[in-house]
């Protein structure tokens, strides 16, 4: 008989609210249906979310690691499952398996300057890291968030971005690829923010999440600034069916993205990252 510890069996979580973030992204807050169950996770990890009868998709956790009583996910409705999730309402139940995968090296970066470079929905898996960095502000050097989106209306978490920017100890720079006339912020891809941030390469840990091409350009720019690959961490995306290294779908060279990643230290995958069709 298969016991309750079956890692393929989802736990049930009830939707507390659904909030539209942009025209194609939304955030949900979930609570365990048995009420008291906490969901501890590390910033950067993901869950497999199951919609009854529709299917399962890997979605990164975007809530606060110090508040395990609620679970938050921000995602973009592009696939069958994510579209189905976007149609759920308060009180509906989702299946959750997780948390899975590796996480951002926050504990190993104490005393360092942290540069977070994100693009598009890539801010979602880094929001838990920002919560944790800010709640333990005194333990880190500079905290720099460089965030790029397609257009001003695609920016996620606008209120929080304003709050963080309002602090005197967090540097938040936002840019968009294109904008209409009334946008007074930066225009240009996220990599254009990197040289302007002027950080100390020997003191900096960089964490990147976004589309793979954006990650590649970002790495190049960070390296131009003198940051070594062992201080660059990226979050990867691949097809996943199990989340626990058994189904083979997320094979990436010698890694399984679901269990060796999604967060990788760049020097460890340098030989295969950016190679065609690996």
């Amino acid at each position: 008989m298969i016991k309750d510890s079956n890692p393929m069996l989802p736990a049930q979580f009830c939707i507390q609210w659904v909030r539209k973030e942009t025209h194609d992204t939304f955030t949900i807050e979930l609570k365990s249906t048995n009420g008291t169950h906490e969901f501890p996770f590390s910033a950067g990890q993901f869950n497999m979310l199951y919609v009854f009868g529709v299917g399962e998709a890997p979605i990164s956790i975007s809530g606060d690691p110090s508040k395990p009583e609620v679970l938050k996910h921000t995602t973009r409705s592009v696939g069958t499952v994510t579209k189905a999730i976007s149609k759920l309402k308060k009180g509906d139940v989702l299946g959750v398996r997780g948390p899975f995968g590796s996480y951002w090296p926050l504990e190993d970066s104490l005393g360092k300057d942290i540069v977070i470079v994100t693009g598009g929905i890539g801010l979602a898996p880094l929001r838990p890291a920002l919560y944790q960095l800010i709640s333990q502000r005194e333990k880190y050097g500079r905290i720099v968030l460089l965030y790029g989106a397609r257009m001003p209306e695609d920016l996620l978490y606008k209120k929080e971005l304003e709050q963080w920017r309002g602090r005197f100890d967090v540097e938040v720079k936002v840019t968009v690829d294109s904008a209409k006339g009334n946008w007074r912020g930066n225009v240009g891809v996220v990599t254009t923010l990197i040289p302007r941030a002027q950080f100390d390469p020997l003191q900096t840990i960089a964490m990147i999440c976004g589309p793979e091409v954006m990650i590649r350009f970002t790495i190049k720019e960070l390296q131009n600034c003198g940051i070594k690959t062992e201080n660059i961490f990226i979050s990867m995306e691949r097809n996943m069916k199990c989340g626990i290294g058994l189904c083979g779908h997320c094979q990436f060279g010698f890694c399984f993205v679901c269990k060796d990643g999604p967060v990788f230290r760049l020097d460890r995958i340098k030989a295969i990252f950016g190679k065609r069709e690996i």
């Binding site: 008989m1 079956n6 989802p10 049930q12 009830c14 249906t33 009854f52 009868g53 509906d92 139940v93």
Partner: peptide, 19 residues
């Protein structure tokens, strides 16, 4: 791997008692 049964807006998982 499992079955699930809907019950209003929630559902419940049933594992096969595999022998």
């Amino acid at each position: 791997m499992w079955k699930a049964k809907r019950n209003g807006n929630t559902f419940r998982f049933l594992t096969d008692n595999e022998k």
